[in-house]
Design a protein around this nucleic acid. Sequence first.
DNA 1: TATTGTTATACTCTATAACTATA
DNA 2: TATAGTTATAGAGTATAACAATA
Lengths: 162, 162
Amino acid sequence: MPKTSNVKNTKPTARRRQQPGLKIPTQGMLSELVGYHLRRAQQRVFEDFTAAIGGYGITPGQFGVLVLIEANTGLNQSELGLAMGVDRSTVVAIVDRLEGNNLISRHPVLGDRRAYALGLTAQGKSVLAKLKVRVRQHDRRIAQKLSARQQAQFITMLNQIA
Amino acid sequence: MPKTSNVKNTKPTARRRQQPGLKIPTQGMLSELVGYHLRRAQQRVFEDFTAAIGGYGITPGQFGVLVLIEANTGLNQSELGLAMGVDRSTVVAIVDRLEGNNLISRHPVLGDRRAYALGLTAQGKSVLAKLKVRVRQHDRRIAQKLSARQQAQFITMLNQIA
DNA sequence: TATTGTTATACTCTATAACTATA
DNA sequence: TATAGTTATAGAGTATAACAATA
């Protein structure tokens, strides 16, 4: 059908109210997997991020890149890839997009003509400043589903896993 | 991730050993965000999953679909999309891939000629049986980074967030 | 030789809009 | 009208392999 809009706009949670043959999907072994719950939580946070920051057309990963570049001005693409855990070729695509949106720029590196030093553009700095406020609100909204104590434990556990 | 084989195979953690201008990227505000740590942990688990199950060319999401179909034989694409939280058009693509790999199949539904009932093929059942063993091992490997008590708390917290 | 960045190519995941067939 | 599935289209994210320029 048409775009899901209908379906989703109508009632995301309620499916065919009291229809006789309503099938409630069971998760099978998935509910026993830590990875499954982790993935679902991740998706949920992603959705909230998009809803809150979406207007800027920035994804969580891109936001991370902007913050990384701001905190480490001048780092090159290989270093960025290392910090993010992605391939050099992937970095090219990521940088291309952000540069295309006028948020970051590539500069020649004195002493190494192979590399590019990455930096935020004036617009990038301006946008990032605003994004940071929004992202902090978004993250607080997510974190508040846990008590202060749980929040600390949660991050500790996430780091034990990562 | 990645292959990045060259870079990573060499020494994932060591970058330019004692180079004078070695820049150690700082994470900036990222380390304060729950969402950031959640995303990193997710990526880490994804990598381990790929390394462990990769040979089958199955992603965590596809594995989830197979389990869901096995546990709810006959559910249709819209129901699958609802259970997964994705759009109908996305389901088409997902089902196409799995069907293309001969793991699942679409069957006519008696009483509703618009819908398709999804089911595992013989090969799908066979492959899933093997995958489940591997995935369980993989998930145990991940979970064991936490104590038994932490594991339970962790899942609880993930569900509070999702 | 090793490293930096690039390009070509190829998937997966995901969404929106418009359309067909059926309910 | 509403729902099931499809198609066309688009974009993010990611990887491998091969290559050029430079170190």
